[in-house]
Write a protein that binds this DNA or RNA. Structure first.
Lengths: 230, 230
DNA sequence: CCTTGTGAAGCGATTCACAGCC
DNA sequence: GGCTGTGAATCGCTTCACAAGG
């Protein structure tokens, strides 16, 4: 019972962010016909420590068996439920440039609880252009998508300079969650959730570590000299 | 002087991850002709708190002026230096499906310190196919790219089931940093750095919050009832 | 005066280590 | 015997609040 309370009361953000990884690892195990897994094994498959995994799972409830481990199917179901993936979420992708088209073609959405219900573009010249099995629709359709299809999540794949306009439009229509691929900060009301994916940022973080690695010897020496000088 | 020591000794990971955002905000300001900025203004442009921004910048050194703020160009230069972006990093993209092609066409890399020197694919049938101004090269070229072009960063844009093979190949050739777009965990030696970008994960995190929002009223009630029952 | 730079306090996440349980 | 679930200890990041300084 207290597990249910814990389950509903704030799962820490850091845990939530790892749940999709556990789910993916469990799906892989299930496909390989494995029906039971220990925290050690699952943690290693998901690339985290077993203590972290157990702590994360403890926020969902108590679904393991001491001395044995976790039942793969059961745990996958519980994580899916916690993440709200028992339903399929309708998603619209806005911006049909290279990235938008790549996202539209990505098959991973469907298998992970999402349904791309519309491809939109701000540019009326593109409206009607076929992309895969769908065709591009105008931004004006977004209100109807929210109202009749329950659209709640929008993916912005436009250039940075139109991303804020698109976000404003989505928010005005009632979209509550946005995944932003444009390299810019979006200004939205507090009750709208935005997550950002930026490949340049990721590369720059890699560059930082790469640079530190190659410069390491020089810098250690230099630092030590300066420390002595203090 | 102590600032220089601080600058070279570990900048916290959380700070490093935000530096690209500051750099981008500074670039925007510079383009708009703004030459000086306060921590409050820059923080708001980058979507963080001013205290956090100042603390982050303090790890680089002391480049502001009390009572005034920061000089935009100077600060941008210092952050670029800290991130190791004074040089252009050669990057290879592996996997020329939809996503790989979209990444190959993305102009944001060049403007942010990266140079896509090669497009590779594991599938020999694709080798030679033109993509933009380049043409697809075989995986066998990777050793030469590392040796002669100083390739250090690889981007994996393959399906999940070939990502590990590609990673092994890159690592064997001497690539030290990998940006992984495939939805899987890569197993690499400790000295190879991997960062992962996964749109499904991001959507699932949004779904979690979206679901919590819609179920909120019911659940608060339910939780309170259960709490009383304890 | 105004804004930076920073010790100190506060907070959340990770890790430890073991009691609880099958 | 072995593995889970979890308090307690620890670590690191964020926030506060103010002294330092142009």
């Amino acid at each position: 019972m207290s597990a249910v309370v814990a389950a509903r009361r704030g799962i820490p953000d850091a845990s939530v962010a790892r749940l999709p990884g556990y789910l993916q690892a469990l799906t892989n195990l299930a496909e390989r016909g494995i029906s039971s897994v220990s925290s050690e094994e699952l943690a290693s498959a998901a690339g985290v420590s077993s203590a972290k995994l157990r702590k994360d799972l403890s926020h969902l409830g108590s679904y393991g068996v001491r001395g044995v481990g976790y039942e793969v199917d059961r745990l996958a179901y519980e994580i899916s439920t916690a993440l709200g993936l028992t339903q399929d979420w309708p998603v619209a992708i806005v911006g049909m440039g290279n990235l938008g088209r790549a996202l539209a073609a990505y098959s991973g959405f469907a298998t992970r609880g999402f349904n791309v219900i519309a491809l939109l573009d701000h540019d009326d010249a593109l409206v009607g252009t076929p992309v895969g099995e769908r065709s591009i629709r105008p931004m004006g359709d977004v209100e109807a998508l929210v109202r009749t299809d329950g659209l709640a999540i929008g993916v912005i794949a436009t250039p940075a300079d139109s991303a804020q306009d698109v976000a404003d439009r989505l928010v005005k229509a009632g979209v509550r969650s946005i995944l932003n691929f444009a390299p810019c900060v979006l200004d939205v009301p507090d009750d709208v959730m935005v997550r950002k994916v930026d490949m340049s940022t990721e590369l720059q973080i890699l560059a930082f570590h790469e640079q530190r690695r190659t410069g390491e010897l020089d810098l250690v020496t230099k630092t030590e000299v300066e420390e002595v000088a203090l």
